[in-house]
Computed example of a mutant assay.
Amino acid sequence: MVNRSFYGTFARALNGALLLLLAASCVLPFFYALSVSLTPMTEVIKNNGFLLIPKKMTFFAYEQLLHGNTLLNAYKVSIFRTVVGTAINLLFTLMAALPLSRKTLPGRNACLLIIVFTMLFSGGIIPQYILIKELGLLNSLWVLIIPGLINGFYLLIMKSFFEQLPKELEEAAKMDGAGEVTTLVRIVIPLSMPIIATIMLFYAVLHWNSYFDAVMYLTDANKFPLQVYLRNILISAVAASGDAAADAADYVNPISIQMASVILTTLPILFVYPFIQKHFTRGVLLGSVKG
């Protein structure tokens, strides 16, 4: 009994220590980015670029990023893209995944083959640009949403989840006179909240972090999302660092501006994630049982 109690206590202590190390590995990079964003260049150089607690703090990096209304407008564009884009992506992914989960659907295998093909092969950047131009989507906010309307990988995950739902519930609903829409709204969607929350998070993070499509298809600076605006700020800071006339003690180097950009772009996702985290792991596991 003593040995079992000792080994049980030791195992719990070891698990706690491992969990603390894992938590520290997740928190320390973010804390490091916050510290560097508040540190002047001389402090960063003195500590060889690594410091967790700055001795002298400056908010110059955030002042440069928050100067004017451009950042606020970029936030609005990114929020519009994330909210509207995620909602539309979820709707179309749901509408495509549900019928594909029915094995009696005519042409189901051919549709799945086409979806998998698009995941492996693409026409390339130039044909895609020509297509976007011919569709009249250049320099429009919708170019950030419509080309990626459905992600094939997320569609397959949601389809696999729908295949695991009890068919008896849908059959019972139809026997009670419920139609397809009523069955979807009152039975399928409530049972599918874990996978819906998971795919919603995937789409939201994808929209929030994307910037290449905005660089490719947008020329109006007022339509730039947050990531493109911060990228341009960082490029300007790097160009200006070579001939900076400010005092070295107060000058903020491009690394501090880069870290401040990381903080400003990460915080919104960190605020949203805890509200859907409880559905996240369950949704991924349930949606990946079957291929």
Rank of each mutant, 00 (worst) to 15 (best):
I88N: 10
N47D: 01
N253Q: 02
S236F: 00
K290P: 04
L144I: 06
M1C: 08
Y229E: 01
Y129F: 15
G107H: 04
T39M: 12
P29R: 14
L100Q: 02
L206K: 14
K159N: 04
G68Y: 05
N73W: 00
N47Q: 06
F280Q: 05
L270D: 06
K174Q: 14
Q227V: 04
S140Q: 11
E134W: 14
F280M: 10
A214S: 13
N48R: 10
L51E: 05
S25P: 00
F271E: 05
K76L: 13
S5Q: 13
M119D: 13
K46V: 01
I145R: 07
T104V: 06
L201D: 01
N3P: 01
A240S: 10
S192L: 05
I187W: 05
P194V: 02
R282S: 12
L100D: 03
L169S: 01
L19P: 09
L120Y: 11
T70F: 00
K159F: 02
Y154H: 15
I146S: 02
P190D: 12
V289G: 11
P29G: 14
I114F: 15
M1H: 13
I257M: 07
C26E: 07
A74E: 00
T183D: 00
P274H: 00
T281M: 14
A178R: 08
P254F: 02
G177F: 10
A244N: 10
K174V: 15
E168N: 13
I125S: 12
F92E: 03
P99G: 07
A17M: 11
I269N: 03
G177T: 05
H207Y: 11
G148I: 10
L141N: 15
K76G: 11
G16D: 00
